[in-house]
Design a binder for these strands. Structure first.
Lengths: 143, 143
DNA sequence: CAATACCCGAGCATTTTTGTCGGGATTGAA
DNA sequence: TTCAATCCCGACAAAAATGCTCGGGTATTG
């Protein structure tokens, strides 16, 4: 039940892009330095984000990446799904294998839990947008 | 964001034990046959469940496993945590590594999401108990 | 043209997963 | 008392996934 390093780095990188929103394209080298992430690894992650339409890339000198939408319109869930693919707690829930997963009665019994789990995970990840992540939180006075 | 096969098998095996609750100890061989799971692999999973106090084992001939509590008092979350350990979406949240994970500012920013995610996952897994899993659901007439 | 970036895919070492294998200890029953 | 069933334990191994690295390409700017 772990997220991959790619996802973690992806979200952190997108948080940086959110901070520099509307400052023109930011090169990956910059993000790599700030976040101490391998540049080559970041280069592997960003095509996924681009294909998902979350960032826009500019090639060549003075190029880089920028968010393709305001931070308020990008949810953490968008990033996670872009980098890792759809959330599937068990293989049985992926559309490819769903046809032949209910041989055993207990599979059908447990399936409802995994579906609920998947939906809730997506919910909580979609509740938080990039701007909420980046904006300074007020200190909670009393809990 | 996947659960391991161990967890999936563990929950299915516990569902079988729930069905046979109060029928005396059920040998792993029986569960293995019903669920088409390798006996030897099940033997690897059940010590975890026993150490977590979820099942009671009887050794020797006519031995086997039985739930140590009524199915209503065993939650899916108990099983998952027994087999996989505590839910930690990112390593930064495990107590071992938590001390040195906030060098980068963005780590602290993203941390709140992962904490929320962890809590919600535990919540949804703890909402469902074994008897809810096993009891026949009424067909939904209209959705 | 030279420097700066993004872009692409192959390779690769490590770790994790998913089991297998062989046996030992314990018990109930014939 | 013997035997078969069962849990118990640890080592090992194959396969998959992870987390990168490497070596180039290609577009763009100054």
């Amino acid at each position: 039940m772990k997220l991959s390093a790619k996802v973690e780095y992806g979200v952190r990188a997108m948080a940086v892009l959110a901070i520099y929103y509307q400052s023109g394209p930011l090169p990956l080298r910059e993000i790599a330095e700030q976040e101490i992430i391998s540049l080559k690894f970041l280069e592997q992650i960003f095509p996924d984000l681009r294909r998902a339409g979350l960032v826009h890339s500019t090639r060549g000198s003075r190029g880089g990446y920028m968010l393709s939408r305001p931070p308020s319109e990008i949810r953490v869930g968008d990033i996670v799904r872009a980098v890792e693919g759809p959330i599937t707690p068990v293989d049985c829930l992926s559309e490819i294998n769903s046809s032949d997963c209910c041989h055993r009665k207990s599979n059908c019994l447990t399936r409802q839990v995994w579906e609920k789990l998947r939906d809730r995970i997506n919910d909580v990840l979609d509740e938080v947008s990039l701007n909420e992540l980046v904006e300074i939180k007020p200190v909670e006075s009393l809990s």
